[in-house]
Design a protein around this nucleic acid. Structure first.
Lengths: 271, 271
DNA sequence: CCGGGTAGTTCCGTTATTCGGAACATAATT
DNA sequence: AATTATGTTCCGAATAACGGAACTACCCGG
């Protein structure tokens, strides 16, 4: 019988629907190392994970043996190259990305600004591809990054393609963190923005995620409606006025529609 | 200092001394799915892995729950996006890659051709970055891929920086697969090429790995000598003559040397 | 050179998870 | 409807992970 601290104790596990046993613990470790700002020593990891020393040591050894982590001779751990190889393969062979790619390039050439492709997953956007112009200032790789949907153009565009019930389900319990002073602050602001987006067919992000960064985005939905995504054109606020974004909007919509067309053709009309 | 790609020789995949228990089986599965040409159904995986059905099913479920695999409604498995997120972060923050990047871009601009950065690991080269003409960095196209060192410019350049003993150890038992009619066919051809490379300071790949593809490459070694890498300029044979490569060689060498200098400065003179 | 702290590794009895055969379910095919 | 191919769940047995504690290696100040 439990002692009566149940409500507090059970909290953590309530979050995780399914326990994944050993694997879950190991990928948490991977995450921990990957998200750190730099290489970590054994003790650093020890203090962040709540594992006993012996256990942690064995877990790290296993990860290293599999090439998922690497440890240098100073005993500092970092993500291993094997992960890079796996990820690169999955990226290169991703059908959706491959289909979208030429359209992204075309959009980049016409606008001269950075173009993103992202897919919706829950209430987050994961960026699948990015095409930059010459003049880009930030080489920060965005591919693979996840951002909240409510404060990104791609995310709001994708959300707008959901029906009301599904939308409500996804944004339930969302936390509206104010990244900038323009970030949407609650569900009603988001819903009102989304209804505007549905009306005009494209979404804006006016410095809502990052100060000085604006974008316009158009939604992409797969035929079966199971995958939602978006394509966006992004630029710095000092160079990109609201008028410019307005002018780009139809281009983004055309690109999104072309991608949908190509998907319909390439993935076959079956089903 | 330590660049993070500790390329400790020795343990090849051939000698899997230590079984890594559960994890090992799971990443084998990941590999299996990642290396396949397309999405796989349960039975496909079942026939390729020697696991019983119940076991395999649980393993796949765990991988899916952790986001390492994804399964669509038709029951087809593919690599999950979580891997992309893990790898992209570590790639973006890889110190060595970050330091080399501006030099790669400069080299690309001057030559107009594709530039590669690769690290040596055992007797293989793993590509860490690639800068192409026209467009921006095509991040994952080649990045993460592994190729034999003996038939690539970057690989031979990196090998040339080893001392004889270490070199012999690494290429012992190598299998010389003839990718093209110019591929080096045995250890003595490789050693003779490497002695030439040591003499002039850079390596050529004259259609040795792929027909119609040539490159010139210069070696990079970390101060402590534990990481070996190379930078190369690659172009199609019809456009790139031997003279052109000769002309690029000093540029590649300068780029490689600059990268080494930057490493020395940025990673601190300590140790 | 010593003593004491810190960092990392190994051991081994206990415990929890994985294993895998077999029964159960659910399409697809004839 | 019968049959086959395919995917899912169960549960006792086997095995791998757990984790406290003992051990080693190293660094640093005295």
């Amino acid at each position: 019988m439990s002692v009566g601290l149940g409500s507090e104790a059970g909290k953590n596990k309530a979050h995780r629907d399914r326990e994944t046993g050993t694997l879950g613990k190991l990928v948490s470790l991977l995450d921990l190392v990957a998200l750190a700002d730099g290489p970590m020593r054994f003790t650093d990891i020890l203090s962040l994970s709540d594992q006993p020393r012996g256990t942690l040591h064995r877990q790290l050894s296993h990860l290293v043996n599999e090439g998922l982590l690497e440890v240098d001779r100073d005993g500092r751990y970092r993500i291993g190259l094997r992960l890079l190889a796996l990820a690169s393969r999955s990226w290169a062979r991703n059908e959706f990305r491959a289909i979208a790619e030429p359209h992204l390039h075309r959009l980049q050439e016409v606008t001269g600004e950075t173009v993103h492709l992202g897919v919706l997953r829950g209430a987050e956007v994961i960026y699948l591809d990015k095409v930059e112009g010459q003049q880009s200032v930030r080489m920060y790789s965005q591919v693979g990054n996840a951002s909240p949907a409510y404060c990104t153009g791609v995310g709001k565009a994708a959300l707008s393609a959901l029906d009301d019930a599904e939308l409500a389900k996804r944004i339930a319990g969302l936390e509206y963190r104010p990244y900038t002073e323009h970030t949407l602050r609650n569900a009603s602001e988001l819903l009102s923005d989304i209804s505007q987006i549905r009306g005009r067919g494209y979404a804006f992000d006016l410095e809502e995620h990052e100060n000085g960064i604006c974008c316009v985005a158009a939604p992409i939905r797969s035929d079966d409606g199971h995958m939602l995504a978006g394509v966006s054109v992004t630029g710095p606020a000092y160079r990109v006025t609201h008028q410019t974004l307005q002018a780009w909007a139809p281009l983004a919509v055309v690109a999104a529609d072309s991608i949908m067309m190509d998907m319909r053709n390439r993935m076959g009309p079956k089903r």
